[in-house]
């Protein structure tokens, strides 16, 4: 039933790709390219905008701060996400769906509603501050501080840690733990020597994913953090809309993009890509 076509004619399937290529290429590709083009002097082939990033005294500091914040967020999400993902593998199907729904809650709600919620929680004399005061720490300021931003960002990024972890942990045969115990390992040793090494792929993927996304956060630091402690995304925004330093912004954007892509590529190689998350999210019938 295939109608034969001349060799020189492209496969008709390519025609169906034209609208997508035009839309994505025109609206996203061209601006990204122009931004890169400006960053190298619009044809003058200069690297001065890049070298400026390292010499202006601000960018490096902000980069370091962003890296540090992202690392803290990554550790916090790992510490919270691992037990949670582990629990997900241990409960029945009903409770598992409940836990999945809770993980996806940060996706479900609008970014601004969520950030607003955090703003209320972190406000001076807000719920979190009063909760912490119960333990004797009554002078912790969270609104407008790095700690507050970390707390909020960790919550938003927790799903990106939990979902790859859950898919990694779900694939581990628990009978291996029984085997280890029959061979003489106490439960905790069995966990450490058998279970944890097998979950390492999920841990690495989740960490890289979380770190990457944390590096590009814009709204949360802008709403909850202090302007004096801006992160790289805010710096990029400032440079664009306030300083109108388009070439400098292009260089910084290119740098962020390259770092992100390298990290994502690495996560992919470690076996936990965005697709893994999608698969888990899809399993539950949830689309976000």
């Amino acid at each position: 039933m295939m109608t034969s076509r001349p060799r020189w004619l492209p496969h008709p399937g390519w025609l169906l790709l034209i609208p997508a290529v035009a839309l994505l290429g025109g609206i996203l590709g061209v601006p990204l390219w122009q931004s890169f083009w400006r960053s190298i002097g619009s044809g003058d082939w200069t690297l001065e905008h890049y070298s400026a990033l390292f010499t202006d005294g601000v960018t490096l500091k902000v980069l370091a701060r962003t890296g540090q914040a992202a690392a803290v967020v990554t550790i916090v999400t790992l510490l919270l996400g691992y037990p949670y993902a582990y629990l997900m593998t241990r409960v029945g199907p009903l409770w598992r769906s409940v836990l999945v729904v809770m993980v996806l809650m940060p996706f479900w709600t609008s970014a601004l509603a969520r950030n607003f919620g955090w703003l209320i929680l972190l406000y001076d004399n807000g719920l979190v501050q009063r909760f912490i005061a119960l333990f004797g720490f009554d002078d912790v300021v969270l609104y407008g501080t790095a700690q507050g931003v970390t707390l909020a960002m960790s919550q938003v990024l927790l799903p990106f840690m939990v979902l790859p972890l859950f898919s990694a942990l779900g694939g581990i045969d628990r009978r291996l733990l029984l085997a280890a115990r029959s061979l003489g390992s106490p439960p905790l040793v069995a966990f450490w020597k058998v279970y944890f090494p097998l979950s390492r792929g999920g841990v690495v993927a989740g960490c890289i994913l979380t770190f990457t996304l944390a590096c590009g956060f814009y709204v949360t630091p802008a709403l909850i953090g202090s302007p004096r402690e801006s992160l790289i995304a805010q710096l990029l925004g400032q440079r664009t809309t306030q300083l109108l330093d388009f070439a400098g912004a292009g260089a910084l954007g290119t740098l962020v993009l390259v770092v992100t892509l390298v990290l994502v590529w690495w996560a992919n190689r470690m076996g936990g890509s965005m697709a893994t998350i999608g698969a888990v999210a899809g399993q539950t019938g949830t689309r976000r």
Binding site: L176, L178, A179, R181, S182, A190
Partner: peptide, 17 residues
């Protein structure tokens, strides 16, 4: 506990690490 019984076990799915 299982790890102190000193019994060798072979599992249906092998359970090799």
């Amino acid at each position: 506990p299982a790890h102190k019984r000193n019994l060798g076990m072979v599992f249906q799915n092998y359970a090799l690490f």
